[in-house]
Amino acid sequence: MTEATTAPKPIPEPDETSEPFWKATLEGKLLLMKCSDCGGFRLPSRQHCDRCLSAKFEWTPASGRGTVRSFGRMHQVYHPAFAEEVPYTLAIVELEEGPRLPTNIVDLDGREVRVDMPVELTWERHEDVALPKFRSRD
């Protein structure tokens, strides 16, 4: 399984809309788009607010605190870069501000994670982006 050990993970590449988000990740900041009209937060980055359809926004730092909305443990190898990591813990974290992030809980075995458990942000650094991950905040 040479392929399994050499394939890199699919690390996101900044595009025009998401560039400010990724730039901030390198400074340890999680930015959210905040609607200038209704105040709603949106994520992932998108031109229009999904509450009021306003196209005006400002990038605002999130607190980095949230709770586990749900979680699971992946046993299948769908992408060769994850072959050595299965089973790994998947989670959707709901940020204090409302938006939800697909992420991983890095400090707990999948069977110790609980729905609604409080978590906080930590970073996984890559060359030109950092990925938001979470650890327990108990």
């Binding site: 699919p10 996101p12 994520l43 992932p44 994850f82 992030l101 991950k133």
Partner: peptide, 14 residues
């Protein structure tokens, strides 16, 4: 190899 933008957060997390 590198999914574009924030849609890439999900596959990066597996």
């Amino acid at each position: 190899p590198r999914p574009k933008g924030m849609a890439g957060l999900a596959p990066a997390a597996g």
